[in-house]
């Protein structure tokens, strides 16, 4: 496998990891945020700047980076979860812009628009990324089928009715928001490790909106759809790298392509490509049980005979 292909897989993994967070935030809890990239930025910049300044391996500072992200998320969420959905989204946009502005203002520390490059190289990053991806998908899947998943969907469908069943909607929203920020910061750190440079523009609102677009394309109610969507839409532009249109590589049209796809989906299959469908491995379990019952039936027959 070429290093180009490996880097592609890592990027796809990062995309899938981010989307699990977005799935929990928007798909389960109905919070539409266009500022998640801010937490990617907070996580990665904090981690690598500290690692560089303090001389500690980034594995340790990553914990601080993720923790700091969660803290900011908590502070941001506290006052905003009680607001109307529109206001909440507006504020997430503002937050995203504010973080980018801060990153540029403090260029002394972050090296501003030129990019922060003091990031170590990690061998076998692709395996780390794959493992984290699988863990995240499992975690969010378990979340969806737990009581928290149900309560989130309830509050998304009808907040008033959810409250009448003693669901503390505010606490739940804050929790999910913090969870999403943690996941975002992890993917931010991976972005840093993969590209070896941190640029403020990577974490702008285009990045945030890209993730929401992926989610709506795959289906806000289907984790499977979200994962497939995040994976394929991320890779798609890379595959079209060599195709040109009006003299510019298709890459430039990437975002336009995403937008068009989303508009098509919203028009023709509003619930998303995968709708409500969730991949489940029940058929494997059933097959396994059948095998077991056949075996024990044979055993019993044997005993009866003797």
């Amino acid at each position: 496998m070429s290093s180009y292909q490996i880097s592609l897989i890592i990027q796809a993994c990062i995309s899938v990891i981010s989307i699990t967070g977005i799935f929990a935030l928007t798909g389960l809890a109905g919070m539409f945020s266009l500022g998640q990239a801010a937490y990617m930025a907070i996580g990665s910049y904090t981690t690598f700047i500290l690692a560089n300044r303090l001389g500690i391996p980034f594995w340790f500072t990553a914990i601080i980076g993720i923790g700091f992200s969660a803290l900011i998320a908590f502070i941001a969420a506290l006052p905003t979860v009680r607001l109307r959905k529109d206001y909440f989204s507006l504020i997430t946009i503002g937050l995203g812009q504010a973080i980018i502005a801060l990153l540029i203002t403090f260029s002394k520390v972050t090296n501003g628009a030129q990019g922060f490059t003091k990031i170590p190289k990690v061998k076998n990053l692709v395996w780390i990324a794959l493992v984290i991806t699988i863990i995240m998908v499992i975690i969010i899947r378990n979340l969806k089928y737990s009581r928290f998943g149900r309560m989130c969907i309830a509050l998304k469908n009808d907040e008033l009715a959810a409250k009448s069943f003693a669901i503390n909607v505010y606490r739940l929203k804050i929790t999910i928001y913090i969870l999403a920020s943690i996941i975002a910061s992890i993917s931010g750190i991976l972005i840093g490790l993969q590209s070896r440079v941190l640029l403020p523009e990577t974490f702008g609102w285009t990045a945030s909106s890209e993730q929401e677009i992926f989610l709506f394309f795959g289906g806000t109610n289907s984790l499977t759809g979200a994962v497939v969507s995040a994976f394929s839409l991320k890779i798609l532009p890379e595959l079209l790298r060599n195709v040109t249109l009006f003299g510019q590589s298709m890459q430039e049209y990437r975002t336009i392509l995403y937008c068009i796809l989303i508009i098509l989906v919203l028009n023709f299959r509003t619930a998303g490509l995968f709708g409500e469908y969730e991949l489940n491995f029940n058929f494997l379990k059933k097959g396994f049980h059948k095998l077991k019952s056949k075996k024990s039936a044979k055993k019993n027959n044997g005993r009866e005979d003797s």
């Binding site: 928290f148 149900r150 969907i153 309830a154 069943f165 003693a166 669901i167």
Partner: peptide, 20 residues
């Protein structure tokens, strides 16, 4: 005001969830 994103059984489970 049933929760449209959940099936009937899950809707009823929601009544129990806050005490989980």
């Amino acid at each position: 005001r049933l929760f449209t994103g959940l099936n009937v059984l899950d809707n009823v489970k929601v009544g129990l969830d806050h005490n989980g």
